[in-house]
Design a protein around this nucleic acid. Sequence first.
DNA 1: ACTGTTTACTTAACAGTGTTAACCTATGTT
DNA 2: AACATAGGTTAACACTGTTAAGTAAACAGT
Lengths: 195, 195
Amino acid sequence: MSLREEILEASKDILIKDGFGKMSMRRIARRADVTATSIYLYFKNKDDLLLTLIQESIDDLKAALEDVIDPSKDFIQQLEDMARVYIRFALNHPKEYEIIYMVRPEEMPKYPREKFNEVRSAYELLADIIDRGRKENLIEVDDPLISAYTIWAQIHGVVSVIINKRLDTRIPYDKFIDQAVDHIIKGFIIHKTPA
Amino acid sequence: MSLREEILEASKDILIKDGFGKMSMRRIARRADVTATSIYLYFKNKDDLLLTLIQESIDDLKAALEDVIDPSKDFIQQLEDMARVYIRFALNHPKEYEIIYMVRPEEMPKYPREKFNEVRSAYELLADIIDRGRKENLIEVDDPLISAYTIWAQIHGVVSVIINKRLDTRIPYDKFIDQAVDHIIKGFIIHKTPA
DNA sequence: ACTGTTTACTTAACAGTGTTAACCTATGTT
DNA sequence: AACATAGGTTAACACTGTTAAGTAAACAGT
């Protein structure tokens, strides 16, 4: 394993085990058994390292979503599958998911917007499915991209509430998730009422 | 104005103008024209100061929501009003809104969970309205609290996507918001189909 | 075999961070 | 006059991200 990979490994390990706040260059270096300055040989700065980590997480999430795509399936079932895989990924890899949305673009002006736009490719998976539903005349939709973002925003909200532990402790996760997924999908397909 | 208030004022000013990352104790102190250590006379530590700031933002948000409550209004209209006021508050005070959800409970173990639970009182406003809809037999709902959280999570998702600049630049905010609010409310009331 | 260059890394340092202990000084109390 | 308290300060500790300069090994050319 190259040093670059070892640094990434160490960073991820610290992120998951010790949390974002403890993820300092020196601590990463210590775990990778080098000095902190060596990290700068492979990454421009901490933001760069972070962005690489983010990109890896995005790739993982995207792979999980691609895995669940099955054109033979019912359109609505397909939507629900994607929603549930997304939520499951986020809850199973909370730190990886968090890091994707933790870093704020305006606080990293050194980096090109394109990097962030790569996240978008994940939504395009969803937009494609929605477009399929439109072509099959199952739903009425203005713009599949807007719809994809709308759905995704809603799901992200559900996930983020759970991960950030903002949910009332009296509410069980699964019941909350079930109801949310149900609402999100119904709110979306209601636009085309069956004749 | 007491020094405590001046510190809070300076903190908020820095948060809004310079961003969260620049909000250091020494910078706050400089702006409030004292030394950094003086802050510790009024706040236990930085987290405590932050929590106070959060609480103030929550109070503002709650006040905005309470303002829009009008029992004489149509139930669905009432829901939509609340959603839109919530979104407008968040977009008009992005830094204040952000800070509410930025601080992670697990990273502030020094503080009692109760403090975070105070945020909940805002949802209870929503839960009350939902309960009203149930009593008037306009909707069918298992648990008003779960429903309140479900709706709120979805709205939070919409807001957070915009604030964190994660929305595709081709999508106009207002169109996105309109569609999202529409979906969220429809997905919620669909459970009770009119006879 | 002796140079020169590149690669991979380290040491030392700078300016900044949150936080604490110790100190000072003016005010009010007995 | 002696003491206590309130409201600050200075100095320091252990940390942070980051850079400039130095080092030591590997490689290339003559």
